[in-house]
């Protein structure tokens, strides 16, 4: 049992995109704020702080997670993945990111991080999604710029490419 006092800052440690990180937080600090302002991982955005818009979605221990509905203290010791962790390297985009760029699946890019996280997580487990499945998955995100259909197309494109790559490498 650990009890963290309200008026103090406490060390929070976890693995962020494969690297150990540590910073201090009051118990009330949201994971979204902790990532952005304590760790400088500003790719995760905050759009509503009540769990509806999906912009802040990250992956915690393999679970899609609204970081605005999660306390930093709750993820102590966990493994986190954020948008900063999905490209193969800083100067190269991954398959999903490239599909987004190719399909003009983003405009302002503010909601995009959360959508990428949902898709990155989902496609890892469901390599051959239908359009309906992608629409169901992404109904937990709000995008005001694109009208969504290019995002869905990008997701299906990426899935197809990932599958064919896998088949090639398996062969």
């Amino acid at each position: 049992m650990t009890r963290l006092k309200a008026d103090r800052r406490h060390a929070v440690r976890f693995s962020l995109n494969g690297k150990p990180v540590e910073a201090e937080a009051e118990p009330r600090m949201l994971l979204s704020d902790f990532l952005r302002h304590q760790l400088g991982a500003t790719g995760t955005h905050v759009g509503c702080e009540h769990g509806v818009c999906g912009a802040c979605t990250v992956v915690v221990d393999g679970m899609l997670t609204r970081s605005c509905l999660t306390l930093a203290a709750q993820v102590d010791g966990c493994e986190l993945k954020t948008v900063e962790g999905i490209a193969p390297s800083a100067d190269r985009l991954g398959v999903l990111q490239q599909a987004f760029r190719r399909n003009h699946a983003l405009q302002c890019g503010f909601c995009t991080a959360g959508i990428l996280m949902s898709l990155d997580h989902y496609l890892g487990k469901n390599p051959n999604p239908t359009e309906a499945e992608i629409r169901d998955l992404l109904s937990g995100h709000i995008c005001r710029c694109t009208g969504y259909t290019p995002i869905i197309q990008a997701a299906l494109d990426a899935a197809a490419e990932l599958t064919s790559k896998k088949e090639t490498s398996d062969a």
């Binding site: 952005r36 991982a41 500003t42 790719g43 995760t44 955005h45 905050v46 954020t82 948008v83 900063e84 999905i86 490209a87 800083a90 985009l93 990111q97 987004f100 760029r101 190719r102 003009h104 983003l106 302002c108 890019g109 503010f110 995009t112 991080a113 990428l116």
Partner: peptide
């Protein structure tokens, strides 16, 4: 022509620079 957007690489990698970033 529908060239790829120069804006996108940063936005897709969490390197956008919005006011609160």
């Amino acid at each position: 022509r529908s060239i790829e957007r120069v804006e996108d690489a940063a936005l897709l990698s969490g390197r956008g620079r919005f006011i609160d970033d």
